[in-house]
């Protein structure tokens, strides 16, 4: 009998901090099981050994910020049967998408001693803007157990159990008292995609939207409540929506609204 073919896994990096792909190495207990279930064919962060394409499953971290990367993602898509984006950079453009709201040349001139060496695009865009993506896993960083779940679902040919409802449900399930209602702390939980397990409210902090917009976010109703009842300044509302998921459509629209109203 032929040995069952183990799917070949590749992990790719674009403009990002590496935190999401490190979540895979951070799996510890599950890492050996993952390594046993797939052939780790390309993962420079973990191993120098690489296997030639094609790959069954590509995990892509990071956003597209250079012309070179815009070409490279096309090549990766061509050699990948399935392509899954992981983390806020790959799914929404990341914190570096703040350049999309300004002139990138201004940033370059401030940050770099020799700006003439910098060759970059004017925008930071999610992977799905460039190629077809089979699945998007949210988070800054992603939740490692959700990453294992996505790989698991892929291996077993089923839909991943990843909920797209609000963070509020995670707070209520774990019994955390609402920080917005009980403490008056501004919290993005009601408009933010679940997945982190509601960590910040459990430590008496408001959610700051690391997992991006939930399935049906009513950002204007929330920001109106913040402004009118909690007394949050309009500039602060812009800053809160311009975080790791600043360029995600619903968050972008909300911050743009307050900026245009200035």
């Amino acid at each position: 009998m032929l040995k069952k073919h183990k799917p070949k896994l590749a992990v790719w990096k674009f403009a990002s901090c590496d935190g999401c792909q490190l979540s895979l190495l951070d799996c510890e207990d599950e890492l050996l099981a993952v390594a046993g279930a797939v052939e780790i064919a390309y993962f420079p962060e973990a191993s120098r050994a690489t296997m030639r394409p094609p790959y069954d499953l590509s995990l892509v971290e990071g956003s597209i910020t250079t012309a070179h990367d815009a070409e490279r993602i096309q090549d990766i898509r061509r050699v990948s049967k399935s392509l899954i984006t992981i983390g806020a950079c790959a799914t929404a453009g990341g914190i570096q998408s703040l350049r999309n709201f300004a002139d990138v040349q201004d940033f370059i001139n401030i940050v770099y001693a020799s700006p003439e060496y910098i060759n970059t695009l004017a925008t930071s865009t999610p992977i799905a803007t460039h190629v077809f993506v089979d699945y998007q896993l949210r988070g800054c960083p992603i939740n490692k157990m959700q990453l294992v779940e996505v790989i698991n679902a892929y291996l077993n040919g089923r839909k991943p159990n990843i909920a797209s409802h609000s963070v509020c449900i995670e707070c209520k399930r774990r019994g955390t008292t609402c920080v917005m209602v009980a403490h008056g702390t501004p919290c993005l939980g009601p408009v933010t995609h679940a997945g982190c397990g509601a960590i910040c409210p459990a430590y008496n902090r408001g959610c700051y939207g690391c997992f991006g917009p939930m399935e049906t976010p009513n950002t204007s109703a929330l920001s109106t409540q913040w402004h009118e009842t909690l007394g949050v300044d309009k500039d602060d509302i812009i800053r809160v929506f311009r975080g790791f998921n600043a360029f995600a459509e619903e968050f972008r629209k909300e911050s743009d609204y307050y900026e245009s109203a200035k």
């Binding site: 099981a33 279930a37 779940e149 698991n152 291996l155 409802h165 449900i169 209520k172 399930r173 976010p217």
Partner: peptide
């Protein structure tokens, strides 16, 4: 509808709301 966040807090805190969902999970080998 214009004000509702669809965050589901009302249903979570409601003492009579009873709806649940089920999730099936497997280990990596199935």
């Amino acid at each position: 509808g214009n004000r509702c966040l669809t965050c589901a807090n009302c249903t979570m805190v409601c003492p009579t709301c009873f709806c649940t969902t089920v999730e099936d999970v497997t280990d990596l080998t199935g």
